Amino acid sequence: MTEVLKTAHSATVRAWVEGWVISRNAPSPVREPWGLRVDVGLPGHVARHVVAAPTPETLQHLTATLTTPGTWLKLCAPPEAVAPLLPPRWAVQDPEFMMTAPLTRAATTAAPAADTSAAAAATAGAPSGYTLAVTTRSGVTAVRLLTAAGEVAARGQYAVAGRTAVVDQVETAGNHRRRGLGTVVMRTIAAGAASMGARTGVLVATAQGQALYETLGWTLHTPMTAAVLTS
Rank of each mutant, 00 (worst) to 15 (best):
A148L: 14
V166G: 03
G197L: 05
T135C: 07
A119T: 12
T222Q: 07
A133C: 10
A124P: 02
Y130G: 09
A119E: 15
D115C: 05
Q169W: 11
Y213H: 05
G209F: 04
A133V: 14
R177P: 13
Q157L: 11
V185Q: 03
L216H: 07
A133D: 13
R144T: 14
T109Q: 11
P95S: 08
L216K: 06
A133R: 14
G139R: 08
G209H: 06
A114V: 11
G174F: 02
E171V: 13
Y158V: 01
V152T: 15
G125P: 07
Q210N: 06
A191I: 05
T206V: 08
T141V: 10
Q157H: 09
G201Q: 03
A194N: 10
S128W: 03
R199G: 15
T100H: 06
G150D: 12
A190I: 00
G182K: 12
G192W: 01
M99F: 01
P127Q: 11
E96C: 09
T172K: 13
T109K: 11
H176E: 14
N175E: 15
P112C: 11
A159L: 04
T206W: 06
L212V: 08
Y130D: 10
A154D: 13
P102T: 10
D94E: 14
S128V: 13
T200A: 08
T131F: 07
T141K: 05
R144C: 10
G180D: 13
T104K: 04
G150F: 12
L203G: 02
Q169L: 14
G197Y: 01
S138N: 15
G162E: 10
R144W: 04
Q169A: 15
D115K: 03
E96I: 00
T135R: 14
T109H: 11
A153F: 12
A194K: 05
V143Y: 00
R178S: 14
A190G: 07
M196E: 15
G201V: 02
L212F: 08
M99A: 04
T100Q: 09
W218H: 02
W218G: 00
T188F: 01
R155M: 14
P102S: 12
V166S: 09
T215R: 15
R155G: 14
L146G: 13
T136C: 10
T109A: 13
V204S: 02
A106K: 08
Y158T: 02
A205W: 06
P95C: 06
D115A: 06
A148T: 15
A121S: 14
G125R: 02
E214F: 02
Y213Q: 02
L216T: 05
V140H: 04
V170F: 10
T215W: 05
P112D: 10
Q169N: 15
L132Y: 10
T172R: 13
P112L: 07
G162S: 11
T206C: 08
E96Y: 04
L220R: 00
D94G: 03
G174V: 11
A121N: 06
T147Y: 12
A161I: 01
M99D: 03
H176S: 13
T123A: 15
M186D: 05
A121D: 09
